[in-house]
């Protein structure tokens, strides 16, 4: 994995990018699966245009945190505001939380794009229809606009000739790039990446990371759960370390890699670099 650092091109990062107002605000979030607490009092603010990388061992809660932001998981305490919405809940003046209905939550999610470890392309639809399904059927875009946008996005992820292919005909790296295009077709304000390269063969990792680095250069707000520290170095404004459901370290990449404070980070870096 460390050899990835040589393959990704350095880009403008920490300090050189103008960050906007906060767009994702996570406050004191608690998450339990049965008796197991997977997130303990997690707080995090991400600003518009910022690229945040979340690292940590498996089971540290990093993927769960990302899924909570898109309200793919409910939370037991705290709150998550994203793109001006209180994700998944309504809070009355007394602070009591009520779960929002399906339709309201669905609308909230349309502000964000999410990319999964296992791609999750729709196998019954070709690439073009994977990308245009949501814009046309859910957002009500007209077919022409949506398809033109889809072709534009396919060019952007380096797959202009794959519009008619089915997911089963694509390699893992190609599928993940289509998944990124599909998420971008919603014109999201924030992109969430849940271990986007963990299911890929080593030779396909860089083609996906390149697309993500391009995206970060264009000013997309990104929250990325990954083990790819090469990507963190190249594109992140901030790197977080999670352990046992808590954020144990938070620093610009330079500092994170050269002068880690937490024992968790030191151990993690010694294993991965």
């Amino acid at each position: 994995m460390s050899n990835m650092e040589n393959e990704v091109r350095p880009v403008a990062r920490a300090g050189m990018r103008d960050l906007g107002p906060p767009i994702v605000e996570i406050r004191n979030v608690e998450k339990r699966f049965g008796n197991v607490t997977v997130l303990k009092d997690v707080s995090l603010t991400v600003r518009t245009g910022e690229v945040v990388v979340i690292a940590g061992r498996s089971g540290s809660g990093k993927s769960t945190l990302l899924r909570c932001i898109d309200h793919l998981e409910t939370i037991e305490g705290g709150s998550i505001h994203a793109c001006g919405e209180n994700m998944g809940y309504r809070q009355d003046s007394g602070g009591k939380r009520t779960l929002l209905g399906d339709r309201r939550t669905a609308r909230q999610r349309r502000n964000m794009g999410m990319v999964f470890q296992s791609f999750n392309l729709f196998p019954h639809l070709n690439v073009l229809r994977n990308i245009t399904l949501s814009p046309i059927r859910i957002m009500g875009e007209d077919r022409k606009t949506a398809e033109a946008h889809a072709h534009e996005l396919l060019a952007k992820v380096g797959l202009p000739e794959k519009a008619d292919a089915y997911p089963s005909q694509l390699s893992g790296g190609q599928q993940q790039r289509v998944a990124i295009a599909r998420a971008l077709a919603m014109r999201p304000q924030v992109m969430l990446f849940d271990e986007p390269t963990s299911a890929l063969d080593p030779e396909m990792i860089s083609e996906v990371l390149d697309v993500m680095i391009d995206l970060s250069r264009q000013g997309m707000t990104m929250i990325v759960v990954t083990h790819e520290m090469g990507f963190a170095r190249a594109a992140a404004d901030r790197v977080l370390m999670m352990a046992d459901g808590m954020i144990v370290e938070e620093a610009p990449p330079e500092e994170f890699f050269t002068n880690p404070q937490s024992e968790h980070t030191k151990l993690f870096l010694s294993k991965i670099l």
Partner: peptide, 9 residues
């Protein structure tokens, strides 16, 4: 998950 993330009811 994917269809939820794409904002579908």
């Amino acid at each position: 998950d994917a269809s939820l993330a794409l904002g579908m009811t």
